[in-house]
Each structure stands twice: as C-alpha cells, then as structure tokens.
Design a protein around this nucleic acid. Structure first.
Lengths: 209, 209
DNA sequence: CTTCTTTTGTGAAAAATGGTACAAAGTCTG
DNA sequence: CAGACTTTGTACCATTTTTCACAAAAGAAG
C-alpha cells in the first residue's frame, strides 16, 4: 500500500491512454493488452502497466484491460467528472483564437470571462465570452470562482498578469507567453511555448548525424 | 574532450537562456552569473552551468558570463544562423492561424507552402502562402527542399499525412493533432497538444493537497 | 603581490525514470 | 480439467538527469 511517488511524466501519458481507450471503446473493442495499447501510442508494454499500476490494478492476467472499465477509471483519475472555470487574459491574435477553441468545453473547462486592457475591446464579447477590463480581474476571478488563468499577453506583460492572477486566488496557469513565470510553488504553471518548440526543432536539424 | 551525451531536456532550456540573455544584452547588461540567470528562469545555478558546459566553456571564474558572447554562442548552437523551409498541412481553423503566425519567420523558418484537400481552398493563397492539393505534396516537398512539416489536420488524418511527409523526405514534424504519430526513429516529432495540457491541468486541480 | 571573495566547471553522489525478468493469475483448447 | 499459452504486476536493475561539493581560476582590495 506504500503509495509510491507518481512520476510527473506519467500524467500526460494517462491522457494519451484515455484518448486511445476511448477510440477503442467506440469501436466496440472490449479488451486490450498493455502491449497492444503501448504499440498504438509508441510506448513499451511495461510503461503502460507501470503507469496504470500507480493508480490501482485494472488489468486481468491473460486477457488484458477492459476498455470500458479502464476508460471510466482514467476519467476518474484525470478528474473528467469535475468541471473548472477558466479566464483568458489577453484578447489579441492568440487570445481570440482561444475564445473560439471548442477544446475547453470538451474537457470540462468553462471559459467564463476574458480580460484585456484595450478600451476598444472592453464591454464587447467574442465567441460568446464577455471581455472585461484587466482592472476588474481580482474581483471577477473571486466572484466567478475561476481556478485556471490563461495568459495570452505579450511576454513583457506576462509576469505582471501572472502576479495578479495568483493574488486573486487562481490555482493553475496555462501560459502562452514566451516568458518564464515566477509563481509560488503551490501554483501549477503549464507553458505552451511555440517558439521554444520551433527553436528546438532547429537545433535538431542542425545536429542531425 | 569526451563529448558527453547531452540530455534531451537541455535543449529547450538553452532556448530559454538565449531568450533571457538577449533581453539582458538589450538592456546593456554586460555580464551575468549562472546564479542570477538561473534565478530569472527558475532553474538552479548548477543546472545552468551544466547545460552550457556541454557545449564549451563560456564563463569567466569570478565574474560570470559575457552576455554578448553567450548570446552569440547560443545562437550558433541552436542553429539560428541557418534557415529551414516549412510546409503546413491542413488549412483549417488552426492551420490558417499558423499561416499568419510571425514566429516562423522570426526563428529562421520559411513557411513556403500549405496543403489541403478541400478543392475550395486549393489554388488560393492565405497570408501570402499558396495552398496546394495534398496530392502534390511529395513532389512539392522535394522541389522546394522542405525539411519541416507542420501537421494541422484532424487526428484521424494525422498518421496518413505523417506517412506522406516522411516518404517525401521531411526531417522533422511539428504535430498539432491530438494523435500519437508513428514515424521512423530518425525523424524528429514535436507534439503541441493543447488538449493534453488541459487534461493535465485538470489532474493537478483534482489532486491538489 | 598576497589574501579574500566570487564564480566557474566538473567529478561523484543522489534522485528520478525507464526497462528486464519472472512469479502469479487468468484464459484457452482439446 | 490438465497442460499450454497469455498477460498482468512488481522486485530488481540500468540509465538518465539533477544536485552536491569542491578545486581551480579570476577579480578585488589593500
């Protein structure tokens, strides 16, 4: 029962397993082995079993995992039975694309408000989301019980926005700005940094054998 | 001289160092210590020195790193003196946003062509990029010496597109589709998977102590 | 030019992560 | 229902990555 520590890298893999298992369940495939599941997502069979093993015993020796059961278990682990409220800060090019992105709703995230400092945008609404002044952030975030803040402002303003979000009581930040945010360690930051990815690719191209 | 193996995770950190160093150089700050640089990007001083140490000795004991020199060195390492040709496959919601994204050019990547299977789009052009039929991919990729393929099609079509890109001789894939691509191991794939990030956040919210 | 301080660069230790191998448990077949 | 086969779960081992600790190098100050 010695609750082993769960590697950070296990969680995104669980998301991938869930995606694949959902597809399998939809195709009416009833069971799947760790080997076959691993093959489909480019991971070893042991990796799959290890990852799942951190959360319980879901498999049956000799036959594998029941797709319906495993799907339900993974959804529970990943908190898909819960919903969370989200605010987007910055309604520029990227921000407005995010307001239209259907993925939030699909994953149980309610995009309730957007903030911007441009007076031409404040008071309007985009893709059904109202845009408020950045000054109203603290109050609005508390009132609407927002737990996820999405930072979609230019790099120069990102830290300042993050500070405001944190002091308003946010729990997680999804950061699209190419900047390293400094936040208290109980706040989870996820960086989505396209220019970092591009430069990494550039490195690999240069250093191909 | 025993060319040690460079951890995969070092590369994205180099990108972050370069970003910070560039900002410092622009502010006319001449030198910086590993401790201070680390502080700015939320990493330890040793981590900074180790990462840089894989590529040479750039620092000066007692005073730190010269920002101009380090900037030049990192740009060289990351291949910023080179340019690469890029093609985007899939001109839907995301694809067209990518065609307008200035980051490609900024990082030395020339976005030369886009492909789509929708006959209404083929032959037109968006943000200055011509849209061709997916059927022409193999030839066009070879002719234009494209080395990076950006996959921006729905998950169901992603593998098929990846296969085509690979057989046309592409070197790297930037994959925006929520799917696990299967490619030969000399091809570098970078996944940018927003729904994976969202579900990971959801997990952390559920499992906060 | 000697001593004190700062800071690098790197072996060696520690921690984290992933893989091997196999017992145990279950399925399948005749 | 016995024996062959499949597949899980995990103890143990290997590898990778990070951190520790410190000698050596350089600067600063008197």
């Amino acid at each position: 029962m010695g609750q082993k520590k769960i590697p950070e890298s296990t969680i995104p893999r669980l998301v991938v397993y869930l995606r694949e298992i959902t597809a399998l369940a939809n195709m009416n495939i009833r069971t799947i082995s760790s080997a076959e599941l691993g093959e489909r997502v480019n991971l070893s069979d042991v990796q799959v079993r290890k990852d799942l093993g951190y959360f319980g015993q879901f498999g049956v020796s000799g036959s594998g995992y029941d797709t319906t059961e495993l799907k339900a278990a993974l959804e529970k682990i990943l908190g898909k039975n819960k919903t969370w409220n989200v605010a987007v800060v910055g309604v520029g090019h990227l921000g407005s694309a995010l307001l239209a992105y259907p993925g939030f709703k699909k994953h149980g995230l309610n995009l309730l408000i957007a903030f911007d400092s441009d007076t031409k945008k404040i008071g309007k609404s985009m893709s059904g989301v109202a845009i408020q002044s950045t000054d109203e952030m603290p109050k609005a975030i508390k009132d609407k019980k927002i737990s996820i803040g999405v930072v979609a402002v230019p790099a120069e303003r990102a830290q300042e926005v993050a500070d405001k979000l944190v002091s308003a009581g946010i729990k997680c930040i999804l950061n699209f700005a190419p900047a390293s945010l400094n936040v208290p360690e109980d706040i989870k930051v996820k960086d989505v940094d396209l220019s970092r990815e591009l430069e990494t690719l550039s490195y690999f191209l240069v250093n191909k054998k």
